[in-house]
């Protein structure tokens, strides 16, 4: 077997293994889909009643792309927590003693988590339709919108993979990532327009890649007011390009770093 074919085959074996866990522990799926549904409903009806969106756009239309982004980014912590759990249980030791591709455990993990995100986005879209969110663009553009979300989440998964291999305790991965993910998903255009932010926060929000993911998704789903003025800042004027720059940087840094850490990491 060539080394590429071997990497692909090993990664798929690991992906399959991770998906079997999802099947055996249905709670995982229930909570992975219930919490975004809860978020959609809470924000739509609690905050939506008080947050005015410029241009007369309904809050549901404004909100949904933000919830999509926030949920898939939070989902990346599963990557880190699961790897930490595998380390704790000695499974990484077993994998490392096998003649398999050195990247396969990480590729298989991030791939399985991406598939989970596909499911989560589907559930949120259905919930969105129920509360008044609509896609106003072509199917092609809508698919690109979903791919944008998935690609950014995939890059975040590799960041979290590195964190998981480093801290080695699932609970710590969760707590540590929350204190980073909460601010980056809230100091952004996710739930409210950023025009009213204090200036420092507004600048941060303008260059925050999460804002660009949300802005890009809004444009690709058509959840923007036609003819509305362009947002401030190059990043939000070219959101898709800006997101892909971040994705490239994340992958270029964290794929090699995570694989290197995996190769040297030791179980308990």
């Amino acid at each position: 077997m060539t080394s590429l074919a071997m990497s692909v085959s090993d990664s798929l074996t690991i992906t399959r293994r991770n998906l079997i866990k999802v099947k055996r522990v249905p709670d995982l799926i229930v909570f992975a889909t219930l919490s975004p549904i809860m978020f959609v409903l809470l924000f739509r009806y609690v905050f939506g009643s008080a947050i005015p969106v410029p241009g007369g756009l309904s809050y549901a239309e404004f909100l949904l792309p933000g919830i999509f982004a926030q949920t898939v980014i939070f989902g990346s912590t599963i990557t880190g927590a699961s790897l930490a759990e595998d380390l704790q249980k000695g499974l990484i030791d077993r994998f490392r003693s096998l003649p398999m591709a050195r990247s396969a455990v990480l590729v298989g993990r991030t791939l399985a988590d991406t598939l989970m995100n596909v499911l989560t986005i589907a559930v949120m879209m259905i919930t969105g339709f129920v509360v008044g969110w609509r896609i106003h663009t072509s199917i092609g553009e809508a698919v690109l919108g979903v791919l944008l979300l998935l690609t950014f989440a995939y890059a975040m998964s590799w960041v979290m993979a590195f964190v998981g291999l480093l801290v080695r305790t699932p609970e710590v991965v969760n707590n540590a990532s929350f204190i980073v993910i909460f601010p980056i998903t809230f100091i952004a255009n996710t739930f409210v327009p950023i025009d009213g932010f204090p200036s420092v926060l507004k600048t941060f929000a303008e260059w925050n890649p999460v804002s660009a993911v949300v802005q890009g998704a809004r444009e690709l789903f058509g959840n923007v007011v036609p003819g509305a003025p362009e947002p401030d800042g190059w990043a939000l004027q070219n959101p898709v390009l800006y997101v892909f720059i971040w994705v490239a940087v994340f992958l270029a840094v964290f794929v090699p770093l995570s694989v290197r850490t995996y190769r040297r990491t030791a179980g308990r």
Binding site: M1, T13, R16, K21, K89, G90, M100
Partner: peptide
């Protein structure tokens, strides 16, 4: 060319016994 059984049974709890062994076999190609 080696086999290793560590101090802690390194089996995937969520996979069945058969799935565990099949997975390891696949990873040995």
């Amino acid at each position: 060319s080696i086999g290793l059984t560590g101090q802690y049974a390194a089996v995937d709890e969520y996979l069945t016994g058969f799935e565990n062994l099949e997975m390891v076999g696949r990873l040995y190609h």
